[in-house]
Design a protein around this nucleic acid. Structure first.
Lengths: 208, 208
DNA sequence: TATTTTTTTGACCAAACGGACAATTATTTA
DNA sequence: TAAATAATTGTCCGTTTGGTCAAAAAAATA
Protein backbone atom coordinates (compact mmCIF):
# COMPACT_ATOMS: atom_id res chain seq x y z
CA UNK A 1 0.00 0.00 0.00
CA UNK A 2 1.38 3.40 -0.96
CA UNK A 3 1.57 6.14 1.56
CA UNK A 4 -0.63 9.09 0.74
CA UNK A 5 1.38 12.29 0.48
CA UNK A 6 -0.25 15.52 1.41
CA UNK A 7 0.01 18.00 -1.43
CA UNK A 8 -2.15 20.97 -0.57
CA UNK A 9 -1.61 22.96 2.59
CA UNK A 10 -4.53 23.19 4.96
CA UNK A 11 -5.78 26.53 6.29
CA UNK A 12 -4.20 25.83 9.66
CA UNK A 13 -0.86 25.00 8.09
CA UNK A 14 -0.81 28.24 6.15
CA UNK A 15 -1.72 30.26 9.21
CA UNK A 16 0.66 28.59 11.62
CA UNK A 17 3.61 28.58 9.25
CA UNK A 18 3.22 32.30 8.76
CA UNK A 19 2.86 32.82 12.47
CA UNK A 20 6.07 30.91 13.07
CA UNK A 21 7.93 32.79 10.35
CA UNK A 22 6.99 36.13 11.84
CA UNK A 23 8.07 35.11 15.32
CA UNK A 24 11.24 33.56 13.95
CA UNK A 25 12.20 36.72 12.09
CA UNK A 26 11.81 38.65 15.31
CA UNK A 27 13.86 36.23 17.39
CA UNK A 28 16.56 35.55 14.78
CA UNK A 29 17.09 39.25 14.10
CA UNK A 30 17.52 39.93 17.80
CA UNK A 31 19.70 36.97 18.76
CA UNK A 32 21.17 35.59 15.54
CA UNK A 33 20.91 32.00 14.36
CA UNK A 34 22.79 30.50 17.25
CA UNK A 35 21.45 32.80 19.93
CA UNK A 36 17.86 32.12 18.96
CA UNK A 37 16.24 29.09 20.56
CA UNK A 38 13.15 27.15 19.59
CA UNK A 39 11.71 27.95 23.00
CA UNK A 40 12.06 31.68 22.34
CA UNK A 41 10.39 31.36 18.97
CA UNK A 42 7.68 29.20 20.52
CA UNK A 43 7.02 31.76 23.21
CA UNK A 44 6.99 34.60 20.69
CA UNK A 45 4.19 32.99 18.71
CA UNK A 46 2.35 31.28 21.54
CA UNK A 47 2.95 27.73 20.35
CA UNK A 48 4.77 24.85 22.01
CA UNK A 49 8.15 23.68 20.84
CA UNK A 50 7.01 20.30 19.51
CA UNK A 51 4.19 22.05 17.73
CA UNK A 52 6.67 24.21 15.86
CA UNK A 53 8.62 21.10 14.95
CA UNK A 54 5.43 19.70 13.53
CA UNK A 55 5.52 22.43 10.89
CA UNK A 56 9.27 22.67 10.42
CA UNK A 57 11.65 19.79 10.73
CA UNK A 58 14.44 21.81 12.34
CA UNK A 59 15.52 25.23 13.56
CA UNK A 60 17.82 25.53 10.59
CA UNK A 61 14.93 24.95 8.21
CA UNK A 62 13.00 27.82 9.77
CA UNK A 63 16.04 30.04 9.49
CA UNK A 64 16.61 29.08 5.88
CA UNK A 65 13.02 29.83 4.94
CA UNK A 66 12.92 33.18 6.72
CA UNK A 67 16.19 34.17 5.09
CA UNK A 68 15.13 32.99 1.66
CA UNK A 69 11.91 34.98 1.58
CA UNK A 70 13.80 38.01 2.85
CA UNK A 71 16.50 37.90 0.21
CA UNK A 72 14.20 38.20 -2.76
CA UNK A 73 12.58 41.24 -1.19
CA UNK A 74 15.98 42.65 -0.48
CA UNK A 75 17.27 42.58 -4.04
CA UNK A 76 14.10 43.78 -5.74
CA UNK A 77 14.37 47.59 -5.54
CA UNK A 78 17.76 47.54 -7.23
CA UNK A 79 16.14 46.01 -10.29
CA UNK A 80 13.75 48.94 -10.49
CA UNK A 81 16.50 51.38 -11.47
CA UNK A 82 15.38 52.19 -14.97
CA UNK A 83 17.38 52.92 -18.07
CA UNK A 84 14.63 55.23 -19.26
CA UNK A 85 14.34 57.64 -16.36
CA UNK A 86 16.57 60.59 -15.58
CA UNK A 87 19.82 59.09 -14.23
CA UNK A 88 20.20 61.18 -11.09
CA UNK A 89 16.50 60.88 -10.29
CA UNK A 90 16.64 57.11 -10.69
CA UNK A 91 19.56 56.83 -8.30
CA UNK A 92 17.98 59.13 -5.73
CA UNK A 93 14.74 57.16 -5.94
CA UNK A 94 16.71 54.01 -5.16
CA UNK A 95 18.34 55.69 -2.18
CA UNK A 96 14.92 56.69 -0.89
CA UNK A 97 13.52 53.19 -1.31
CA UNK A 98 16.43 51.67 0.57
CA UNK A 99 16.06 54.20 3.36
CA UNK A 100 12.36 53.44 3.70
CA UNK A 101 13.23 49.77 3.91
CA UNK A 102 15.63 50.52 6.74
CA UNK A 103 12.83 52.27 8.56
CA UNK A 104 10.06 49.74 7.99
CA UNK A 105 12.02 46.49 7.71
CA UNK A 106 14.49 46.87 10.52
CA UNK A 107 14.36 43.23 11.58
CA UNK A 108 14.92 42.02 8.04
CA UNK A 109 17.89 44.34 7.65
CA UNK A 110 19.46 43.13 10.88
CA UNK A 111 18.96 39.50 10.03
CA UNK A 112 20.55 39.99 6.64
CA UNK A 113 23.44 41.91 8.17
CA UNK A 114 24.08 39.22 10.77
CA UNK A 115 24.07 36.56 8.11
CA UNK A 116 26.62 38.35 5.93
CA UNK A 117 28.71 39.38 8.91
CA UNK A 118 29.13 35.77 9.95
CA UNK A 119 30.23 34.60 6.54
CA UNK A 120 26.89 34.19 4.77
CA UNK A 121 26.89 30.38 5.08
CA UNK A 122 23.44 30.05 3.52
CA UNK A 123 23.53 33.08 1.27
CA UNK A 124 26.80 32.89 -0.58
CA UNK A 125 25.36 31.24 -3.68
CA UNK A 126 22.62 33.86 -3.93
CA UNK A 127 25.15 36.63 -3.51
CA UNK A 128 27.33 35.22 -6.24
CA UNK A 129 24.27 34.31 -8.33
CA UNK A 130 21.18 36.40 -8.80
CA UNK A 131 22.43 39.38 -6.81
CA UNK A 132 25.67 39.55 -8.74
CA UNK A 133 23.75 39.39 -12.01
CA UNK A 134 21.57 42.31 -11.03
CA UNK A 135 24.49 44.32 -9.73
CA UNK A 136 26.55 43.72 -12.87
CA UNK A 137 23.59 44.79 -14.93
CA UNK A 138 23.21 48.05 -13.05
CA UNK A 139 26.94 48.68 -13.08
CA UNK A 140 26.78 48.59 -16.86
CA UNK A 141 23.95 51.07 -16.82
CA UNK A 142 25.83 53.39 -14.48
CA UNK A 143 28.90 53.19 -16.67
CA UNK A 144 26.78 54.04 -19.67
CA UNK A 145 25.40 57.09 -17.89
CA UNK A 146 28.91 58.15 -16.96
CA UNK A 147 30.19 57.78 -20.50
CA UNK A 148 27.27 59.89 -21.71
CA UNK A 149 28.18 62.57 -19.15
CA UNK A 150 24.81 62.23 -17.44
CA UNK A 151 26.32 61.66 -14.01
CA UNK A 152 29.76 62.47 -12.67
CA UNK A 153 32.33 59.68 -12.97
CA UNK A 154 32.57 57.30 -10.01
CA UNK A 155 33.26 53.63 -9.52
CA UNK A 156 29.77 52.14 -9.94
CA UNK A 157 30.40 49.16 -7.66
CA UNK A 158 31.49 51.37 -4.83
CA UNK A 159 28.62 53.74 -5.50
CA UNK A 160 26.22 50.86 -4.93
CA UNK A 161 28.11 49.77 -1.83
CA UNK A 162 27.86 53.31 -0.48
CA UNK A 163 24.10 53.41 -0.97
CA UNK A 164 23.68 50.08 0.77
CA UNK A 165 25.91 50.90 3.69
CA UNK A 166 24.60 54.38 4.37
CA UNK A 167 20.93 53.44 4.24
CA UNK A 168 21.20 50.14 6.08
CA UNK A 169 23.22 51.80 8.80
CA UNK A 170 20.03 53.40 10.14
CA UNK A 171 18.47 49.97 10.65
CA UNK A 172 21.45 47.87 11.67
CA UNK A 173 23.10 50.40 13.97
CA UNK A 174 19.93 52.03 15.22
CA UNK A 175 20.97 51.56 18.83
CA UNK A 176 24.12 53.57 18.22
CA UNK A 177 22.36 56.21 16.14
CA UNK A 178 19.71 56.77 18.77
CA UNK A 179 22.26 56.79 21.58
CA UNK A 180 24.15 59.64 19.99
CA UNK A 181 21.26 61.91 19.05
CA UNK A 182 19.31 64.05 21.48
CA UNK A 183 15.56 63.65 21.85
CA UNK A 184 14.69 66.27 19.27
CA UNK A 185 16.91 64.87 16.54
CA UNK A 186 15.95 61.34 17.50
CA UNK A 187 12.36 61.89 16.46
CA UNK A 188 13.35 62.97 12.98
CA UNK A 189 16.30 60.72 12.21
CA UNK A 190 14.85 59.39 9.03
CA UNK A 191 13.80 62.81 7.78
CA UNK A 192 17.28 64.18 8.48
CA UNK A 193 18.86 61.10 6.98
CA UNK A 194 16.87 61.50 3.80
CA UNK A 195 17.80 65.17 3.49
CA UNK A 196 21.42 64.34 4.10
CA UNK A 197 21.58 61.46 1.66
CA UNK A 198 19.79 63.25 -1.16
CA UNK A 199 22.01 66.30 -0.79
CA UNK A 200 25.03 64.09 -0.55
CA UNK A 201 24.43 62.01 -3.65
CA UNK A 202 23.25 65.00 -5.63
CA UNK A 203 26.44 66.92 -4.91
CA UNK A 204 28.47 63.87 -5.75
CA UNK A 205 26.78 62.82 -8.94
CA UNK A 206 25.43 65.96 -10.54
CA UNK A 207 27.03 66.94 -13.83
CA UNK A 208 27.41 70.64 -14.45
CA UNK B 1 45.57 34.63 59.07
CA UNK B 2 44.94 36.86 56.07
CA UNK B 3 44.91 35.42 52.63
CA UNK B 4 47.61 36.71 50.40
CA UNK B 5 46.22 38.38 47.32
CA UNK B 6 48.25 38.33 44.19
CA UNK B 7 48.79 41.85 42.94
CA UNK B 8 51.29 41.67 40.14
CA UNK B 9 50.70 39.55 37.07
CA UNK B 10 53.28 36.92 36.33
CA UNK B 11 54.89 36.62 32.92
CA UNK B 12 52.82 33.55 32.16
CA UNK B 13 49.60 35.33 33.12
CA UNK B 14 50.37 38.22 30.81
CA UNK B 15 51.20 35.91 27.94
CA UNK B 16 48.29 33.54 28.36
CA UNK B 17 45.70 36.26 28.88
CA UNK B 18 46.80 37.89 25.67
CA UNK B 19 46.76 34.57 23.90
CA UNK B 20 43.21 33.96 25.07
CA UNK B 21 42.09 37.45 24.09
CA UNK B 22 43.41 37.02 20.59
CA UNK B 23 41.71 33.67 20.14
CA UNK B 24 38.51 35.00 21.69
CA UNK B 25 38.39 37.95 19.33
CA UNK B 26 38.71 35.57 16.43
CA UNK B 27 36.00 33.22 17.66
CA UNK B 28 33.59 35.89 18.91
CA UNK B 29 33.82 37.86 15.68
CA UNK B 30 33.05 34.78 13.65
CA UNK B 31 30.28 33.27 15.77
CA UNK B 32 29.01 36.05 18.03
CA UNK B 33 28.78 35.88 21.80
CA UNK B 34 26.27 33.06 21.92
CA UNK B 35 27.67 31.11 19.00
CA UNK B 36 31.16 31.12 20.44
CA UNK B 37 32.00 28.34 22.87
CA UNK B 38 34.79 27.99 25.38
CA UNK B 39 35.88 24.85 23.56
CA UNK B 40 36.28 26.79 20.32
CA UNK B 41 38.30 29.47 22.04
CA UNK B 42 40.35 26.80 23.79
CA UNK B 43 41.09 25.06 20.54
CA UNK B 44 41.96 28.33 18.82
CA UNK B 45 44.68 29.10 21.34
CA UNK B 46 45.80 25.57 22.12
CA UNK B 47 44.77 25.62 25.77
CA UNK B 48 42.28 23.45 27.61
CA UNK B 49 38.91 24.74 28.73
CA UNK B 50 39.63 24.61 32.46
CA UNK B 51 42.90 26.34 31.79
CA UNK B 52 41.08 29.23 30.19
CA UNK B 53 38.75 29.40 33.17
CA UNK B 54 41.82 29.67 35.35
CA UNK B 55 42.55 33.05 33.76
CA UNK B 56 38.98 34.24 33.26
CA UNK B 57 36.10 33.41 35.54
CA UNK B 58 33.53 33.11 32.75
CA UNK B 59 32.92 33.34 29.04
CA UNK B 60 31.09 36.61 29.55
CA UNK B 61 34.13 38.06 31.29
CA UNK B 62 36.33 37.25 28.30
CA UNK B 63 33.80 38.81 25.98
CA UNK B 64 33.53 41.93 28.11
CA UNK B 65 37.30 42.37 28.21
CA UNK B 66 37.76 41.85 24.49
CA UNK B 67 34.97 44.30 23.76
CA UNK B 68 36.25 46.84 26.24
CA UNK B 69 39.75 46.99 24.84
CA UNK B 70 38.32 47.19 21.35
CA UNK B 71 36.01 50.11 22.08
CA UNK B 72 38.72 52.47 23.22
CA UNK B 73 40.69 51.77 20.07
CA UNK B 74 37.53 52.26 18.04
CA UNK B 75 36.77 55.74 19.25
CA UNK B 76 40.30 57.09 19.22
CA UNK B 77 40.76 58.28 15.62
CA UNK B 78 37.67 60.46 15.86
CA UNK B 79 39.36 62.42 18.62
CA UNK B 80 42.28 63.14 16.30
CA UNK B 81 40.21 65.42 14.06
CA UNK B 82 41.93 68.69 14.77
CA UNK B 83 40.54 72.17 14.98
CA UNK B 84 43.81 73.51 13.67
CA UNK B 85 44.16 71.62 10.41
CA UNK B 86 42.48 72.36 7.12
CA UNK B 87 38.84 71.24 7.55
CA UNK B 88 38.47 69.14 4.41
CA UNK B 89 41.90 67.57 4.91
CA UNK B 90 41.10 66.69 8.50
CA UNK B 91 37.88 64.97 7.47
CA UNK B 92 39.53 63.09 4.62
CA UNK B 93 42.30 61.99 6.94
CA UNK B 94 39.67 60.57 9.28
CA UNK B 95 38.02 58.71 6.41
CA UNK B 96 41.37 57.22 5.47
CA UNK B 97 42.09 56.15 9.02
CA UNK B 98 38.73 54.45 9.34
CA UNK B 99 39.21 52.68 6.03
CA UNK B 100 42.61 51.39 7.09
CA UNK B 101 41.03 50.10 10.27
CA UNK B 102 38.45 48.23 8.20
CA UNK B 103 41.26 46.62 6.29
CA UNK B 104 43.53 45.74 9.19
CA UNK B 105 41.03 45.26 12.03
CA UNK B 106 38.31 43.28 10.30
CA UNK B 107 37.60 41.04 13.28
CA UNK B 108 37.29 43.98 15.61
CA UNK B 109 34.91 45.71 13.26
CA UNK B 110 32.73 42.63 12.96
CA UNK B 111 32.62 42.07 16.68
CA UNK B 112 31.63 45.67 17.27
CA UNK B 113 28.97 45.48 14.57
CA UNK B 114 27.49 42.30 16.00
CA UNK B 115 27.35 43.85 19.44
CA UNK B 116 25.50 46.96 18.25
CA UNK B 117 23.27 44.96 15.94
CA UNK B 118 22.04 42.86 18.80
CA UNK B 119 21.20 45.78 21.02
CA UNK B 120 24.60 46.64 22.46
CA UNK B 121 23.85 45.05 25.84
CA UNK B 122 27.34 45.73 27.19
CA UNK B 123 28.15 48.83 25.22
CA UNK B 124 25.16 51.10 25.65
CA UNK B 125 26.67 53.11 28.51
CA UNK B 126 29.85 53.70 26.54
CA UNK B 127 27.88 54.76 23.49
CA UNK B 128 25.84 57.20 25.54
CA UNK B 129 28.90 58.22 27.54
CA UNK B 130 32.38 58.76 26.22
CA UNK B 131 31.49 58.18 22.57
CA UNK B 132 28.63 60.66 22.70
CA UNK B 133 30.91 63.24 24.32
CA UNK B 134 33.47 62.90 21.56
CA UNK B 135 30.84 62.96 18.83
CA UNK B 136 29.13 66.03 20.27
CA UNK B 137 32.48 67.73 20.46
CA UNK B 138 33.27 67.03 16.80
CA UNK B 139 29.76 68.02 15.75
CA UNK B 140 30.40 71.42 17.26
CA UNK B 141 33.64 71.69 15.34
CA UNK B 142 31.96 70.70 12.08
CA UNK B 143 29.20 73.24 12.68
CA UNK B 144 31.84 75.89 13.28
CA UNK B 145 33.55 75.03 10.02
CA UNK B 146 30.22 75.21 8.23
CA UNK B 147 29.35 78.59 9.71
CA UNK B 148 32.76 79.84 8.61
CA UNK B 149 32.07 78.58 5.06
CA UNK B 150 35.04 76.25 5.21
CA UNK B 151 33.02 73.19 4.26
CA UNK B 152 29.65 72.91 2.55
CA UNK B 153 26.65 72.73 4.89
CA UNK B 154 25.55 69.25 5.94
CA UNK B 155 24.10 67.68 9.05
CA UNK B 156 27.27 66.86 11.03
CA UNK B 157 25.78 63.86 12.84
CA UNK B 158 24.77 62.24 9.61
CA UNK B 159 28.10 63.10 8.06
CA UNK B 160 29.79 61.14 10.83
CA UNK B 161 27.34 58.26 10.42
CA UNK B 162 28.08 58.19 6.70
CA UNK B 163 31.82 57.95 7.29
CA UNK B 164 31.36 55.13 9.77
CA UNK B 165 28.95 53.14 7.62
CA UNK B 166 30.81 53.46 4.34
CA UNK B 167 34.19 52.56 5.75
CA UNK B 168 33.06 49.78 8.08
CA UNK B 169 31.06 48.24 5.25
CA UNK B 170 34.28 46.94 3.72
CA UNK B 171 35.06 44.99 6.88
CA UNK B 172 31.61 43.92 8.05
CA UNK B 173 30.21 42.97 4.65
CA UNK B 174 33.44 41.77 3.11
CA UNK B 175 31.86 38.50 2.05
CA UNK B 176 29.27 40.37 0.02
CA UNK B 177 31.77 42.83 -1.40
CA UNK B 178 34.11 40.08 -2.53
CA UNK B 179 31.24 38.01 -3.94
CA UNK B 180 30.18 40.82 -6.21
CA UNK B 181 33.55 41.89 -7.57
CA UNK B 182 35.55 40.02 -10.16
CA UNK B 183 39.06 38.81 -9.43
CA UNK B 184 40.77 41.90 -10.77
CA UNK B 185 38.69 44.37 -8.79
CA UNK B 186 38.81 42.10 -5.76
CA UNK B 187 42.53 42.54 -5.42
CA UNK B 188 42.27 46.31 -5.26
CA UNK B 189 39.06 46.80 -3.29
CA UNK B 190 40.64 48.99 -0.70
CA UNK B 191 42.48 51.11 -3.22
CA UNK B 192 39.27 51.61 -5.21
CA UNK B 193 37.33 52.26 -2.02
CA UNK B 194 39.78 54.92 -0.96
CA UNK B 195 39.63 56.65 -4.32
CA UNK B 196 35.86 56.51 -4.27
CA UNK B 197 35.48 57.80 -0.73
CA UNK B 198 37.95 60.64 -1.11
CA UNK B 199 36.32 61.80 -4.34
CA UNK B 200 32.93 61.39 -2.79
CA UNK B 201 33.55 63.41 0.34
CA UNK B 202 35.54 66.03 -1.52
CA UNK B 203 32.72 66.66 -3.96
CA UNK B 204 30.26 66.75 -1.14
CA UNK B 205 32.11 69.02 1.25
CA UNK B 206 34.24 71.31 -0.87
CA UNK B 207 33.32 74.96 -0.76
CA UNK B 208 33.77 76.87 -4.00
C1' DT C 1 -22.77 10.97 13.86
C1' DA C 2 -18.80 7.86 13.00
C1' DT C 3 -14.42 7.61 11.10
C1' DT C 4 -10.33 9.34 9.48
C1' DT C 5 -6.93 12.75 9.37
C1' DT C 6 -4.65 16.64 11.26
C1' DT C 7 -3.01 19.12 15.13
C1' DT C 8 -1.33 19.59 19.78
C1' DT C 9 1.12 18.39 23.84
C1' DG C 10 3.65 16.30 27.94
C1' DA C 11 7.29 13.59 28.78
C1' DC C 12 11.46 12.27 27.43
C1' DC C 13 16.38 11.86 25.33
C1' DA C 14 21.17 12.69 23.89
C1' DA C 15 24.46 16.12 22.93
C1' DA C 16 26.59 20.39 23.89
C1' DC C 17 27.60 23.65 26.97
C1' DG C 18 29.47 26.60 30.92
C1' DG C 19 31.62 25.83 34.75
C1' DA C 20 33.61 23.40 39.36
C1' DC C 21 37.19 20.93 41.59
C1' DA C 22 40.66 18.05 43.27
C1' DA C 23 44.82 16.18 41.88
C1' DT C 24 48.98 16.69 39.27
C1' DT C 25 52.75 19.16 37.18
C1' DA C 26 55.64 23.10 36.45
C1' DT C 27 57.67 27.20 38.02
C1' DT C 28 59.28 30.44 41.23
C1' DT C 29 61.29 31.65 45.48
C1' DA C 30 63.79 31.04 49.84
C1' DT D 1 67.60 21.90 46.66
C1' DA D 2 63.34 22.24 49.31
C1' DA D 3 59.16 24.60 50.06
C1' DA D 4 55.74 27.38 48.27
C1' DT D 5 53.18 29.06 44.74
C1' DA D 6 51.35 29.06 40.09
C1' DA D 7 49.67 26.61 36.19
C1' DT D 8 47.47 22.67 34.02
C1' DT D 9 44.36 18.99 33.33
C1' DG D 10 40.96 14.89 33.69
C1' DT D 11 36.79 14.22 35.40
C1' DC D 12 32.61 15.47 36.72
C1' DC D 13 28.00 18.14 37.17
C1' DG D 14 23.72 20.72 36.29
C1' DT D 15 21.48 23.20 32.74
C1' DT D 16 20.09 24.30 28.24
C1' DT D 17 19.21 22.95 23.84
C1' DG D 18 17.43 20.71 19.50
C1' DG D 19 14.75 17.19 18.60
C1' DT D 20 11.63 12.56 19.26
C1' DC D 21 7.51 10.11 20.19
C1' DA D 22 3.36 8.24 21.61
C1' DA D 23 -0.87 9.58 23.15
C1' DA D 24 -4.59 12.90 23.40
C1' DA D 25 -7.42 16.49 21.38
C1' DA D 26 -9.36 18.86 17.59
C1' DA D 27 -10.87 19.26 13.02
C1' DA D 28 -12.24 17.58 8.65
C1' DT D 29 -14.67 14.24 6.05
C1' DA D 30 -17.80 10.54 4.93
Amino acid sequence: MTKIVQIKQTRIQREKRLLIQKAALQVFSEFGLRGATLDKIAKACGLTKPNILYYYSSKDEIYAEVLQSLLEEWIRPLKDISENGDPLTEILKYVQKKLIMSKTKKQESKLFATEILHGAPLTQNILAGSLKETVDDKVKLLNKWISEDKIAPVDPYHLIFSIWSMTQHYADFDVQVYSLLNTKKRSRVFQDAEDFLLTFFTRCLKQD
